[in-house]
Write a protein that binds this DNA or RNA. Structure first.
Lengths: 241, 241
DNA sequence: CAACGAAATATCGTATACAATTTTTGAGCA
DNA sequence: TGCTCAAAAATTGTATACGATATTTCGTTG
């Protein structure tokens, strides 16, 4: 089970705008599952099926799916149903461009107001991330790696930016599921440690520039060539026989 | 009636993530009404009442209200219902801080790729804004003033930023309804014309800095002192008798 | 045997009914 | 008059039923 203290779903209600209840629970559960890559992009989320799994009626499930659709994790097609979203190459670029603009500004804010308790908490988070990697639980490691960013936003105590970051992190998770090309997912934690150093020194400028480099680095770890550039054209595929 | 060609609701489905249907129509209608300050912050949006107005069942109305809740225009309280959102002073600051970061970057992008047809369209938009002011239709003028910003985002052709700008503009409208202190709402259009000059020259740097100044100027037009500073304390109110 | 098309099935869209909760009302009392 | 509390009314939360649309199946035909 995901450790609630280190998961980002505890504040989800602030960005999901759903009142507490079963719809929110289903929403959180699906959210976690998608972030851990247990549900792959494109997978169909049938209302009946989801409802049966959680023991809820379609009314409730629909509310949850619509909430996830609003945050970009699910796409709903009229009269066809809900699917785990499949961000296009274009959207993948846009998500990381937005992160490169917003997250450094958020890191700057966080450096100016972080408390000792929060520093401790973030180190514990890194430790959990490290542990998940050690255990070979990639899904959890990825999810924790993302929620590290949302926790920075929480430190900045800026609801509006925090909401944006949460949404961007979620979509990044889908982008990574679709387009990640690097094998060394572990290198991430190095950047996170560097950011922690800057935060601990309350060095806002350093925090901002480290975060910016980190996002750009992540962006460069994606294979965002268009399909035709990736040799998946029909003619080439047929020649392989 | 709002001119559809100049309203920002035509692209709403992209950010609302609601499939076409009556729910989206209700959503759009309420959205416009809130942006035109026909519905004031804090107003209760009863499901039955809204449903009767639009001739739809509560099921559909609920979907619309939840969509609006997610975009921050409506707040839903468990077992109490939906209300037009009432942003706090803190949130008001945050919304304009976010705009000051994002919109200048968007203006820069827009300057790099704006077409002649889009320039023409934007000038027509400014003309409509001017006309609304001349007619004394404040609600429409305010709404058009906001949608000018979302149209810039559309020019930039960046879905992710456009979605954020749309959401921020909507919330700004609520903030203005609650906290606007300046009487000269017309001065806005001067900034918009200056931005158009920069866009027409494809001067990305100028567009960025003009937009940043414009947002900061708007922010400074708000009275965001906390309640106790505004002389609305209980003791002072009682002394007025 | 592949292509087409119609019936059968499955899934979503919407309305409505009932349960749970909140809000209002007003009777009783100090 | 003003307060308390319980009953009534109103409103939201959820389940279910039915109609509309999409998908699949399968028999027919060229």
């Amino acid at each position: 089970m995901t450790n609630a203290a280190l998961s980002d779903s505890s504040h989800l209600h602030e960005v999901i705008a759903l009142p507490p209840g079963r719809a929110l629970e289903i929403c959180r559960s699906l959210h976690s599952a998608i972030l851990e890559h247990k549900l792959v992009p494109g997978l169909k989320l049938s209302e009946d099926e989801v409802g049966e799994i959680y023991g809820a009626s379609r009314t409730v499930v629909r509310a949850a799916l619509q909430a996830l659709a609003h945050s970009g994790l699910v796409s709903i097609e009229k009269n066809r149903g809900a699917f785990v979203a499949k961000p296009s190459v274009q959207e993948a670029h846009e998500v990381f461009q937005a992160r490169a603009l917003i997250e450094p500004a958020v890191a700057r804010l966080a450096a100016d107001m972080i408390t000792d308790a929060q520093i401790k908490r973030l180190y514990a988070h890194l430790e959990a991330e490290h542990q998940a990697l050690h255990d070979g639980d990639m899904g959890k490691a990825l999810s924790l790696s993302g929620s590290f960013h949302t926790e920075i936003a929480d430190v900045a105590d800026h609801r509006v930016f925090a909401g944006m970051v949460r949404s961007l992190i979620s979509r990044s998770s889908l982008v990574i599921a679709l387009y990640w090309k690097r094998s060394d997912t572990a290198c991430e934690s190095h950047s996170h440690h560097a950011l922690m150093d800057a935060l601990e020194k309350r060095d806002a400028g350093a925090a901002e520039s480290i975060q910016k480099s980190h996002i750009i680095d992540l962006h460069s770890g994606l294979d965002l060539r268009s399909k035709s550039d990736r040799g998946l054209s029909l003619s080439q595929a047929l020649q392989d026989d």
